[in-house]
Amino acid sequence: TRVETATETAWISLVTALHLVLGLSAVLGLLLLRWQFPAHYRRLRHALW
């Protein structure tokens, strides 16, 4: 049971790290898009909202 718990903890930390990385890359990508294509971003936002 001790090994299982350790594996579970490792998986949880791995998944958390993955989610953090994905979230950060998504935010960075959005910022980059907004910085590179302001007109396109505004049009996209206008279409979405």
Results as ranks from 00 to 15, higher is better:
R2N: 08
L22D: 00
R2H: 05
A26I: 14
L32Y: 12
R43P: 02
L22Q: 01
A47L: 05
V21K: 01
A47D: 05
F37N: 04
L22K: 01
H40C: 15
I12E: 10
E8K: 03
R2E: 07
L44M: 10
V21E: 00
A47P: 03
V15P: 05
A17E: 03
T1I: 08
V27E: 00
T1K: 11
H46G: 09
S25M: 07
V21G: 13
L32V: 10
I12V: 09
I12T: 09
L18I: 11
V21M: 10
L30N: 01
G29V: 15
R2M: 13
A6C: 07
A47Y: 08
W49K: 05
A39C: 12
R43Y: 07
T9S: 12
H40G: 13
L33Q: 00
S25R: 02
R2T: 10
T16L: 15
L33D: 00
Y41K: 02
T1Q: 12
R45F: 06
S13I: 14
A47K: 08
L24C: 07
L31T: 12
T9L: 10
H40V: 12
L30D: 00
L14Y: 08
R34E: 00
T5G: 02
R42N: 13
A10R: 13
R42D: 09
Y41H: 05
W49C: 04
S25D: 00
F37R: 09
R43M: 13
E4M: 08
S13V: 15
E4C: 03
Q36L: 07
I12A: 14
L14Q: 06
E8M: 05
L28Y: 06
H40D: 05
E8F: 07
R34K: 14
A6R: 08
Y41C: 13
E8L: 02
R43F: 07
L48H: 01
H40N: 08
L28I: 11
A47I: 05
L24Q: 01
H19C: 15
L18V: 13
W11D: 07
W49Y: 02
R45A: 09
L31D: 00
S25T: 10
E4I: 08
L22W: 04
R45N: 04
V15Q: 13
Q36A: 06
H40L: 14
T5D: 01
L18A: 14
A47V: 08
P38I: 11
L18S: 10
L33T: 03
R42I: 08
W35D: 03
A17L: 09
L32R: 01
W49R: 05
S13G: 13
L24I: 13
A26T: 12
W35G: 05
L18M: 12
E4T: 06
T1V: 12
T5W: 03
W49H: 04
L20N: 01
S25A: 09
T9I: 13
E8V: 04
H46A: 07
R45I: 12
W35I: 07
V3W: 02
V15H: 06
L48V: 05
T9E: 12
H40F: 08
T1H: 09
R34P: 05
L14T: 06
V15E: 04
T9M: 15
S25C: 13
L32M: 08
A17P: 03
T1F: 09
S25V: 09
L44E: 00
L30K: 02
L14P: 11
L28E: 00
V27L: 12
S25I: 09
V27K: 01
V21D: 02
G29F: 14
A26W: 11
L48W: 05
Y41L: 14
